[in-house]
């Protein structure tokens, strides 16, 4: 907050000295300071974010074509020496199933973070020691918890996560079916009203029909009377 504040005062002073404020009939001393300290950072923020998005767009554009092969090469082989093809294949699958804890939405294979490099090296060591995939995952789970696995394990803690969506789907389907059935029934009832008014639903409709008829008759009688 410091720099924009200081700049705003400087701006204020220069604006006061150039008579900008008096020209607009504004008395500015203390108000100026507080006003600028709020407005200027906003303006500057808008400019900065616009500039940042231009830079970001340029970066994405460039990295798509030029930078990414280089960057990928760096990410893929931080370890010394190439692993044998079958080890490489296992590493690729394992690393894509494990989460980097620094860049939390990236797998170990994708992440450029230092920790991801350490963990890739560790996984490779374990693979080369002849550990099974399950053992390697258990090794990391013991240290970093379930979070390190991209696919959470199915246990009582995660039942809601795994089966909740299906539960919601069932509830949705059931309520849809109920609504459809009720509408179907109502349509049937409306169809049969004239024939047998027995249930309260039907008698209600009949009573309103009677009332409507009474009102209509009344209206007609009224008009007749006037004529």
């Amino acid at each position: 907050m410091r720099p924009p504040y200081r700049v705003s005062i400087a701006m204020c002073k220069s604006l006061i000295s150039t008579g900008v404020f008096s020209r607009f009939g504004l008395k500015m001393a203390a108000e100026c300071r507080s006003w600028f300290s709020v407005v200027l950072p906003l303006v500057r923020g808008a400019y900065t974010s616009a500039a940042a998005s231009v830079v970001a767009a340029a970066f994405v554009f460039l990295s798509a074509g030029v930078v990414s092969p280089v960057a990928n090469a760096q990410v893929q082989t931080p370890e010394a020496g190439l692993p044998s093809p079958e080890v490489a294949k296992r590493l690729k699958t394992l690393e894509s199933e494990l989460r980097c804890l620094v860049c939390q939405n990236q797998t170990l294979a994708e992440s450029p973070a230092g920790l991801a490099g350490d963990l890739r090296r560790e996984v490779r060591t374990l693979v080369e020691q002849g550990k099974s995939d399950a053992e390697i995952k258990a090794f990391l789970r013991a240290r970093y918890g379930d979070f390190v696995l991209y696919k959470p394990p199915v246990d009582p803690k995660t039942y809601l996560l795994w089966f909740g969506p299906f539960g919601l789907l069932l509830i949705g389907a059931a309520s849809g079916w109920l609504v459809a059935r009720r509408r179907g029934l109502a349509a049937k009832v409306a169809h049969q009203v004239g024939e047998a008014p027995s249930t309260p639903e039907k008698s209600k409709q009949v009573s309103s029909q009677q009332r409507a008829r009474a009102l209509l008759d009344d209206d007609v009688a009224d008009k007749d009377g006037k004529r």
Partner: peptide
């Protein structure tokens, strides 16, 4: 509006029935 008393009572009854269901 000239309403004859028998007709108006039948309208009131219908109103009461509506209220319970309501």
């Amino acid at each position: 509006m000239s309403v004859d008393p028998t007709q108006s009572s039948s309208v009131a009854a219908a109103d009461a029935a509506d209220a319970t269901i309501g």
